Lab assay of single mutants.
Amino acid sequence: TTITITINGEELRIRGDHEEIHKILKAWEEDHNDEEIVRLIRELAER
């Protein structure tokens, strides 16, 4: 699965399995701050 998210003008492409993507979207849905979401995404992007 690949998704693209733009946060603060920075486009981040994430490839991951369903569970990893779900974790990010769940954090977003629960209204975590952008920095935390960006950190989760970067961790995935670095793999």
Rank of each mutant, 00 (worst) to 15 (best):
E20M: 06
E29M: 12
E10M: 08
E29Q: 13
R15C: 05
K26E: 08
R47K: 15
E19A: 11
N33I: 14
D17W: 08
R15K: 11
T2D: 11
K23S: 07
T2Y: 13
N33F: 15
A45R: 02
G9A: 03
L44Y: 08
I37V: 12
V38T: 06
G16V: 09
E20G: 05
L12A: 01
R15G: 06
I7Y: 04
I7S: 01
D34M: 11
R47C: 15
A27K: 13
E46P: 00
K23R: 15
L12I: 09
E30W: 10
L12W: 14
R42W: 13
K26D: 07
H32L: 10
R47W: 15
R42P: 00
L12C: 02
E10N: 07
A45D: 08
R47I: 15
R42A: 08
I24S: 01
R39F: 05
W28P: 00
I5L: 10
I14G: 01
E46S: 03
I14F: 07
R47V: 15
N8E: 10
E43W: 12
K23C: 03
E10D: 07
G16P: 02
L44C: 03
I14V: 07
T4R: 08
N8Q: 11
E11C: 05
E30L: 13
L44A: 04
A45K: 02
E10Q: 11
I3T: 05
H22R: 12
H32G: 09
E35M: 11
I21D: 01
R15D: 08
E10T: 11
T6D: 05
T1M: 13
I24W: 05
L12Y: 15
T4A: 08
D34F: 13
E43S: 03
R15T: 14
H18S: 14
E46F: 04
A45W: 05
T6S: 09
I5Q: 00
L12M: 09
L44K: 01
T2P: 03
H22E: 13
R42Y: 15
I41Q: 00
N33Q: 09
A45F: 03
R15L: 14
L40E: 02
R42L: 15
R13H: 14
E35I: 10
L12V: 05
I37H: 02
N8W: 06
D31A: 09
T4I: 14
K23V: 07
R13T: 12
E43T: 04
E43I: 07
L25I: 10
I7R: 01
R42E: 11
